[in-house]
Design a protein around this nucleic acid. Structure first.
Lengths: 190, 190
DNA sequence: GTATGATTCAAACGCCCGTTTGAATTGCTT
DNA sequence: AAGCAATTCAAACGGGCGTTTGAATCATAC
């Protein structure tokens, strides 16, 4: 039957994890559409049908790879913003602090090139997702970000009350663009 | 036989042009891979095989769509840079002028939303190409840009001799990122 | 008007994809 | 040891893709 387990059994995680790891690698390297389940399951030394058994569909696998890593990342962002707000005690926050709370966790994860940790790999994948056109991916990103964007937008608007809404929106757009481009990049620079 | 014409005959251009136009629209809207030749030829009210007759392959069609528009754009960029250099008479150029020579033509083309002209449409396509992962597209972009990047890089280095090479590279990277992100964007802002 | 080459067309080819199936195998429980 | 669900597996399904083919049509030159 479909992924119904009666209990967390002994060690089915092995297959699941192997799929998740290979998926992260291949999605980051080739993009979500170009990386096929056949290539992926071969790399993971796992049967093709295992993806559907453990995840249900390719889209669901993408979602899993995504959320598994993005959730902690966004939690860290919100945590840093919380810390800033607690320290400010009601006063508006320093804009640079807000921006650092948003980009810091990503940049730190991107530097993390320890073997096995794969932080860098996931950030590459995140950059790829930003550049993706397919509605599936765009929806996924949006739903994962909506809470974060909302909190940070509010904080920035409060920190810069004199800045026109439009101008602020453009600046945020520019920042996001620079970030996603640099992150997705092929390390051409540096 | 394959695309060998004995003479520019009466009006074969009609089919070729219809394909090019539909290709630009659909590539810009859905990306190069997601837009299929079947969808494209249907939209152009043209037979499926006409693409291979007139262009040889999908990749060659992409190249044609691309070069047809990118060549004049890059010519304009280089022209503006030439004008700057002639006006400066050997002195280093104002950095803002260099940057305007590079981004100005794109931004102007992007604003051009007159029906039929399709400037905006092509710039969207250009943004999509920047975000693309496939080697075909990356190679295409690189070969189309290499001359421009070289000239502008030299000009910037000469205009900002005190700036470390690395720092300059990063700044260029950021600018390109912001541009491609904004341009490819779904007009979410503004 | 007929010959010739350019162009269009419907149909098929072969490939890769995500997904489904149903039978083996495995591992735990009793 | 038997039973049973969880898991693995090889094989196939159906569909979309870029491409090829070979005949039909069209336009031109003689």
């Amino acid at each position: 039957m479909h992924p119904k387990k009666q209990l967390p059994p002994g060690d089915s995680l092995n297959t699941r994890e192997r799929i998740l790891n290979s998926a992260e690698v291949l999605f980051a390297e080739h993009g979500f559409e170009r990386a096929s389940l056949r290539a992926l399951t071969t790399a993971a030394r796992v049967n093709l049908a295992a993806v559907h058994y453990h995840f249900g569909s390719k889209a669901a696998l993408i979602r899993s790879v995504f959320e598994q890593r993005l959730a902690p990342l966004n939690a860290e962002r919100l945590g840093e913003l919380d810390a800033l707000e607690n320290a400010a005690r009601g006063h508006p926050l320093p804009p640079a602090g807000i921006i650092e709370a948003f980009f810091g966790p990503v940049l730190r994860m991107s530097m993390d090139r320890g073997p096995g940790s794969g932080g860098h790999r996931f950030i590459q994948l995140l950059g790829r997702a930003h550049a993706e056109s397919s509605p599936t991916i765009r929806d996924l990103l949006e739903s994962a970000y909506i809470k974060v964007v909302d909190r940070f937008g509010t904080a920035l608007r409060r920190a810069l009350p004199q800045m026109p809404e439009k101008e602020l929106a453009w600046r945020i757009h520019f920042m996001l663009g620079a970030m996603s481009y640099v992150i997705a990049g092929t390390d051409a620079v540096q």
